[in-house]
Amino acid sequence: MGLLSRRALNRSLLDRQLLLRRSSLTVTQTLEHLVGMQAQVPEAAYIGLWTRLENFMHDDLAQMLLDRRAVRMALMRSTIHLTTEQDALRLRPLVQPVLDRDLYKNSTHAKGITGLDMGDVVAYGRALLEEAPRTIKEIGELMNHRWPEHPPSSLAYSLRNLLPLVQVPPRGIWGVGGQTRCTTATHWIGRSLNDNTTLGEMIVRYLEAFGPATTQDMQTWSGLTKLKEVVEGLRPNLLVYRDEDGQELFDVPEAPQPDSDTPAPPRFLPKYDNVLASHANRTRIIADQHRKLVMMKNGMKATFLLDGFVCGTWKIVPERSSATLVVEPFGKLNLEEKNALTEEGMKLLQFAAVEAAVHDIQFASETEGRQTIA
């Protein structure tokens, strides 16, 4: 049983996440390899694909959404993910227990559905949503006409968790936006959910994209609990390691494990990138003291990597005819690091702020405990 250092885990993760070098995979291949991308912020997936793929263009993803070959729906951790249409149908049945738990233990909505026959609620809601895509507010109000003693928001939330709802375009289309309107995945895609995929198959795919990993890591990524029995069933076909803390790590045979000294180029990651949210112990990519600077109560900031680790956050500030990339490092950057981030940052601006006539990059620095622009 070999020992894997934090740096070795970092390089394995970066390689499998297509962050050591940009890949020539298609968008479809990438989404399936990554087992989806967290995507409650519509533009995040575009940035996440741009930072991983060669020559990625906005329309490469937008057209897939319009053609119904990719969808946005609640999956792992009960959060919105972008997946291929095939993975939407395969993964949703497997993570349904996560959405059930989120609904029935939800401090806001669980009480609001108490006493209801949820079979009736689901059947009535399905008919309304397949009649026409509707916003959460619209579906809640329509459901409330049938069940006036129950809060519209709780009725709508129950459908969000009990039905496989997808967010339909123009939501998710770069530069278009629009309200979040939903219908069922089976109606939108035109096929039934796939109940043939096993939890073991999902875990193997997770390891291919995020491994080596502990059982707790698998549970953190998926939101599922009690996966130990599933992992034990897979053990004969997995490699087993230990990390620096003595935790048992599992991996698939022949998975890439680059040398710890493999160079890692600077990378700009979008808000909510799964690479930061898919392990119980995230020190392979972000230091514990930096997590609270990135993972806020109201969301996760966009980050950048230097030498493979999260070293700060970034945002694009648009003005009338210009766009400024503001880079906020956690510590002092040397000239080489600034130059590397500037080169990659200009590419980011050319992709994410293509409409701006002027692009600029500014580095924030700590002065007297405040973040100021330098």
Results as ranks from 00 to 15, higher is better:
residue 153 S to Y: 11
residue 200 G to C: 09
residue 130 E to D: 12
residue 187 H to Y: 06
residue 272 Y to E: 07
residue 154 S to M: 08
residue 66 L to A: 08
residue 316 I to F: 13
residue 56 F to P: 03
residue 259 D to M: 09
residue 71 V to R: 00
residue 236 P to V: 02
residue 201 E to K: 00
residue 165 L to H: 09
residue 344 E to W: 05
residue 257 Q to A: 02
residue 309 F to H: 05
residue 62 A to H: 11
residue 20 L to C: 09
residue 152 P to Y: 13
residue 370 R to L: 06
residue 158 S to K: 14
residue 119 G to R: 10
residue 202 M to S: 01
residue 40 Q to N: 14
residue 363 F to A: 07
residue 279 H to Q: 00
residue 298 N to H: 05
residue 370 R to I: 03
residue 347 K to H: 12
residue 202 M to V: 00
residue 344 E to D: 03
residue 270 P to A: 07
residue 17 Q to V: 12
residue 198 T to D: 02
residue 283 T to F: 10
residue 352 A to Y: 13
residue 331 G to C: 10
residue 296 M to W: 06
residue 179 Q to M: 06
residue 68 R to K: 14
residue 260 S to D: 08
residue 3 L to R: 03
residue 363 F to M: 06
residue 136 I to Y: 15
residue 335 L to S: 07
residue 8 A to W: 03
residue 64 M to E: 08
residue 138 E to M: 06
residue 51 T to A: 15
residue 174 W to P: 01
residue 48 G to Q: 07
residue 207 L to Y: 05
residue 49 L to N: 10
residue 146 R to G: 11
residue 331 G to I: 09
residue 68 R to T: 12
residue 341 L to I: 07
residue 198 T to V: 03
residue 156 A to F: 08
residue 53 L to A: 05
residue 52 R to M: 12
residue 113 I to A: 04
residue 142 L to C: 10
residue 304 F to Y: 13
residue 128 L to S: 08
residue 55 N to P: 10
residue 52 R to Q: 15
residue 285 I to G: 03
residue 164 P to M: 06
residue 117 D to Q: 15
residue 345 G to C: 13
residue 314 W to V: 09
residue 161 N to C: 15
residue 163 L to C: 05
residue 233 G to M: 04
residue 189 I to V: 15
residue 277 A to V: 03
residue 81 H to K: 02
residue 374 A to M: 08
residue 248 E to Y: 09
residue 61 L to F: 14
residue 311 C to K: 07
residue 135 T to H: 01
residue 244 E to W: 01
residue 195 D to P: 00
residue 27 V to D: 10
residue 313 T to D: 02
residue 27 V to K: 11
residue 275 V to L: 03
residue 4 L to K: 15
residue 359 H to I: 05
residue 68 R to Q: 12
residue 213 A to I: 01
residue 13 L to S: 09
